[in-house]
Design a protein around this nucleic acid. Structure first.
Lengths: 236, 236
DNA sequence: CAGTGGTCTAGACCACCAC
DNA sequence: TGGTGGTCTAGACCACTGG
């Protein structure tokens, strides 16, 4: 844990628990520097992170205002696993593996989100996500066989990310995502209990490692009436 | 223009035009510092910005790799106006004002995106966006009357953001957005030429100024079959 | 006016990568 | 081993806010 992250985590926690309340000012940068025994620059980096995440807004000559008790609803935003998400939200979720096969990457299917995808063999994983006993999402994953050899049912039904990071020590760096709305396929209708003319929200993503290897291609098909996505963005 | 932004813009432009090609390394931070006559720290801040935007990925001991020729499709991500967007994409677009009235802010309608919205009088603007003669989006704006007095038809059909920033000198700081899918209303069906059982993608947003005043509430209703949203995200 | 955040600098030490 | 990015520091000057 770096000093920057210690300051960031502590401030974030104090904002979350109301020690620093919404619409009030944080201590000044110099005050925080003394408090944490850090240089002003390190404090500023922690504040920049809070700013990017939408916790504070800084104003010249005044200070940094707490603006937002962060609330997660469905952050397609951010690179986060389904397991991490459901834990944070206290959902009662189950994951059922429907398919686990080896096949070449269907490049054309991910053209929009990664125009330069290269051929490779993959593990194809199809999983059904249920929340409170209701089927909500079908996740279709293609995992690069050069990076990850094979995946057990136990891992697939628990958490891929925990396996990748904890066991294989892969460093996940970034992802590109795309959201569209499409007519439900026969499989969507069957697994998600949908009518013939229903739509699903499709989230396609490519996740890459620190060395820029694209190693996971995912197509996530959501019941449209259960889909919700929130984000925070800054101007310029 | 700060030195940081000069470096950022120049590097970004060189990446866009291929001077620094995808999958190649940028000059080292020390080299860039000499090149631009800036300190290493300033260079690092510019690189951090490029990293956040998905242009480069840095690797300890190796350098910073160009990973992505940025491509805009429909950035709900980012605080950007429809006019800025259509210019960037070279769309042929028209905007038609349908309604321009004064009314109290419909707080309940924006509860999900701003739970603490306060009562205020607003200008309600309803505008239809067409791309290549095809109606694609209905924008319903509520603009805080305490911040912006009234809005002319000419401004509404050109660009609100250009007016807010250029004429009124407001500093737009950040926005919260939410995406959901809803059944098309009668107005949706009529204006967007949709069937009775069609769905629309609804993007609700609250935009705030530097002093944290929420001044614009927008409900953007998109034809589902024309909607596409892409984003870049980093882990942790 | 004093205090705040915004920008910029020069230098230090570390962990990591490639040769 | 030399060069790279990652972290941290101490200090400077500026523009802005508030009383």
């Amino acid at each position: 844990m770096t000093k920057l992250d210690l300051v960031y985590q502590d401030l974030k926690q104090k904002i979350d628990t109301g020690v620093y309340a919404t619409d009030t000012l944080l201590p000044s940068e110099n005050a925080l520097a003394s408090l944490y025994g850090a240089s002003r620059d390190t404090i500023r980096k922690a504040l920049a992170k809070l700013r990017d995440q939408g916790f504070i807004q800084s104003q010249k000559g005044r200070g940094s205002v707490v603006i937002n008790r962060q609330q997660y609803v469905f952050p397609v935003s951010g690179v986060i696993s389904y397991k991490e998400l459901s834990q944070r939200l206290n959902f009662k979720t189950t994951t059922t593996m429907i398919e686990n096969t080896q096949m070449p990457l269907p490049i054309a299917n991910f053209k929009a989100v990664d125009p330069h995808a290269k051929p490779c063999t993959t593990t194809r994983l199809v999983r059904l996500r249920e929340v409170n006993g209701e089927p909500v999402i079908i996740d279709i994953d293609y995992i690069n066989g050069d990076v990850v050899p094979a995946i057990s049912k136990a891992v697939a039904e628990d958490s891929l990310y925990a396996y990748f990071e904890g066991q294989l020590h892969l460093t996940i760096a970034y992802a590109k995502k795309e959201i569209t709305v499409e007519p439900a396929t026969a499989q969507d209708q069957q697994l998600l209990h949908l009518d013939a003319n229903a739509s699903v929200v499709v989230v396609k993503s490519v996740t890459s490692l620190e060395d820029t290897t694209a190693f996971q291609y995912t197509e996530s098909r959501h019941r449209a009436d259960r889909f919700r996505f929130q984000e925070f963005a800054r101007r310029a």
